[in-house]
Write a protein that binds this DNA or RNA. Structure first.
Lengths: 340, 340
DNA sequence: CTTGGCACTCGCAGAGTTTGAGTGCCAGCA
DNA sequence: TGCTGGCACTCAAACTCTGCGAGTGCCAAG
C-alpha cells in the first residue's frame, strides 16, 4: 500500500516537473527536487512499473520519462484538487467582467480574461437560446414584399431574418400580423415557441395566412438555426507560440479554431454549471488534435448550463491552475447572467 | 535607356523568382530561367547597381539577392499590372458569395473566400454605418424602467442598446415615444440622425422629455459607437504556417489580429472603391510587423467606399495575383451591396 | 557596354566524435 | 520483500571538421 502511494507520488512529481520544465524528467532530478525519501534507484523501479502500466513513456532510450495521456488523466482525476483562487485573483476577475454592458460584451471580455489568466487559447460559446424566452417579435416592412423579422429574447439577444412575401402586405395588415404573432409566442420558451409557430398560420385570418406562414418559418429558422450553430468567440491565439511543431500541432488547431462547428464539438458536452470537464489528447473527437487538451465548464443563469467556455492547450499544461481559472470565470459569468 | 530597362527586368525577375522559390536568387539561375539575352556577368553588374540603389540585398556574402521593401515597392508600382481573373475564378467568386443571406453573411463568406484565394490571412471590415440610413427604431419594454432600443438600418444591420429610464413609462407613452422617434429619424442618414437626436427631447411632450432624452442618447451611442470601433472578421490564420519565425513574425501578427482596433489601423485608409492599396513591410504603422505586407481595397455600394477588406501576408508574396484577388472580391462585394 | 575567366568567400550538409543524462539489472543488505 | 549502491550500456544532442558549390567581385579583352 505504501509502495502504491509512493508510486502515485512519483507520477505526480513527474507530471509537475514535466509541465514546468517541458523536458523529460529522470530519476535523479526527481529525487533532488521532491522529498520522496527514497533513492533514485527505487524511483527507477517505480518508473518501470508506471511505464508498464502505461502512465508514462520514454521518448527514446536514455531519456527521462514523459507522462502519457493516461498519466495525465490519472493525475487530473486523483492527484490534484482544483486550488481556490486567491482574493486578488477574484478581484481581478470581478473588475475585468463587471464593466460589461451586454451579453456579447460579457462573452468578449471573458475570452480575453481567460486567455490572459491561463495563457492559453480561450474559447467562449455565446449563450444559446434554448432556455431563453421570447420577449418580442418585431416585423418591419423593408419593401412592399419584404419584411425584416426581428426576434428579441429574454437574454437581451437579438436575431434577425429577412422574409420574402408572396404578395404585398398593407401596413395595417402588418400590424395585425405583428400583434397576433406576439400574442402567440411572446413570453414562451424557445422550444415551445417553435412548436407554436408551426401552427401559427392557421390561427389568423385567411387573407393573412400566407404571409403568416412565411414569417413564422423565418422566425423559427432564426430560433433553431442559432441554437445549433451558436457562435463562439476565440482569443489568445498568440499563446500558441509555446506549443510544439507548427504543422503537426498549431496548424490543425488554428484550422479548428476557425470552424465554429468543430470548435463547439471540441468544447463538447459540459456537465452542469460549475463542473469542470477535462479532455486530454486523444480523448477528444479529433485525431489531428491528439496533443491538445480542452478544459471546459458550462455556465448559465441559475443552476442550468446553457453554454460552455474553456481553453484549449497542449496536453502538457498546468491542469490545476487552468481548471481553477476556468471554473472561476464560469462561475462569475453565471452570476452576471443571473443578475441580468 | 535600354540598360535601365534591362535593370528593371532583372529586378522583376528577381522578385518573381524569389517569391516562387523562397530562396535568394543568383545571377546564373536568373539567366537560365528568364530570357534576358545577356550573360550572367552582365546581370551581376546590374545586380550590383540595384543593390547600391537599395532595391535588393544579400543575406550574406556568397548568397543570391533578395528584394528589399523598396524593391517590392518599385515592383508593385511599375513592374506589374494586376492580372485579370479568369472566367473560372470569377464564377467561383460569384458562386461563393451569391448565397449570402445578409450583410454579416457576406462579410463572413468574403473572409473565407479571400483567405482561400490568396492563401493568406484575410481581413474584412464590416460595413460602417456612416452612409447608411435609419430604417426603423424600435423601443421594447424590458422592465418598467428599462427599454431595449433596436436600431434597424438600410443595410439590414441591426444594433441594440439597453436604456435605463429615470421613471416608469406606460405602454401608451412608449408607443407615443416610438412614434415620434421614428418620425424624427426614420429615413435619415446616420450623420444627420445623430444631430436630430440631439434635440429630440425638446420636440416631445414635457412628460416624455426625460425618457426621450435617455433613449435618444442610447440610440446615438449605438450609431456612433459602431461607426468608430467597427468590427472586423478574420480568417485563414492557418495560412500563417508558411510565414517565417514564430516569435519574430507570427506572434506579433496573431496579437494584432485579435486587436480589432489595431487591425483597422493596419487595413488603413483605403482609396476609393476598386483601388487596391499595398503597404509593404516597414511602410505600415507597426514596427513589429516589418516583415508583413497588407493588400487592401475599399468597398461599398455605388462608388463610395464605406469599409475595407484585404489580406495580410509576408512581404514575400505574389503581389500581382494577390492584388487581383483582393480587387475582384472587393468589386463583387460592392456589387452585392448595390443590389441589396 | 558586354563578356568570359578567375580567385575568393562562406553557408550548408554530412561524417565523425564526445559528452552526459538516463536507464536496466544485479547483488547485497535491512 | 523491498531498498540501495554500483556498474555497464544506450543514445540524443552538441560540437568539430571538412569538402562542396553557389555565388560574388574584379579584370582584361572584345
Amino acid at each position: 500500500m505504501v509502495v502504491e502511494d509512493r508510486r502515485l507520488a512519483v507520477l505526480r512529481a513527474i507530471v509537475e516537473d514535466y509541465v514546468s520544465t517541458e523536458e523529460p524528467v529522470g530519476s535523479k532530478a526527481l529525487v533532488e527536487r521532491h522529498q520522496l525519501g527514497v533513492s533514485p534507484a527505487t524511483v527507477r523501479n517505480d518508473m518501470a512499473v508506471l511505464e508498464d502500466e502505461g502512465f508514462i513513456t520514454q521518448p527514446h532510450t536514455s531519456a527521462g520519462r514523459v507522462p502519457t495521456d493516461k498519466g495525465y488523466r490519472l493525475f487530473v482525476d486523483r492527484l490534484t484538487q482544483v486550488k481556490p483562487m486567491s482574493a486578488a485573483e477574484r478581484r481581478a476577475i470581478a473588475s475585468f467582467l463587471d464593466g460589461a454592458v451586454d451579453v456579447d460584451d460579457v462573452v468578449q471580455r471573458s475570452v480575453r480574461l481567460l486567455s490572459q489568466l491561463t495563457r492559453q487559447v480561450a474559447v467562449v460559446q455565446y449563450p444559446t437560446l434554448s432556455n431563453s424566452t421570447v420577449r418580442h417579435v418585431e416585423l418591419v416592412s423593408v419593401t412592399p414584399t419584404r419584411l425584416l423579422a426581428v426576434l428579441i429574447l429574454s437574454t437581451g439577444r437579438v436575431e434577425q431574418r429577412l422574409v420574402e412575401l408572396e404578395g404585398e402586405l398593407a401596413d395595417d395588415e402588418l400590424s395585425e400580423l405583428r400583434g397576433s404573432l406576439n400574442g402567440a409566442v411572446a413570453g414562451e420558451q424557445i422550444s415551445d415557441a417553435v412548436t407554436t409557430l408551426g401552427e401559427f398560420h392557421a390561427t389568423v385570418r385567411p387573407e393573412l395566412a400566407s404571409a403568416a406562414r412565411t414569417a413564422a418559418v423565418a422566425v423559427r429558422e432564426a430560433m433553431s438555426d442559432h441554437r445549433s450553430d451558436a457562435r463562439v468567440a476565440v482569443g489568445g491565439t498568440a499563446n500558441l507560440s509555446r506549443f510544439g511543431e507548427f504543422d503537426t500541432t498549431i496548424r490543425p488547431l488554428l484550422e479548428a479554431l476557425e470552424e465554429h462547428v468543430v470548435l463547439l464539438k471540441l468544447l463538447g458536452e459540459t456537465g452542469s454549471d460549475g463542473l469542470v470537464t477535462v479532455r486530454i489528447g486523444h480523448e477528444g473527437p479529433f485525431q489531428n488534435l491528439a496533443t491538445t487538451s480542452v478544459v471546459a465548464a458550462g455556465y448559465g443563469p441559475g443552476e442550468q448550463s446553457i453554454a460552455s467556455l474553456g481553453i484549449v492547450g497542449p496536453t502538457r499544461m498546468d491542469y490545476p491552475a487552468t481548471m481553477a481559472s476556468v471554473r472561476a470565470v464560469a462561475r462569475y459569468v453565471s452570476r452576471i447572467l443571473d443578475e441580468a
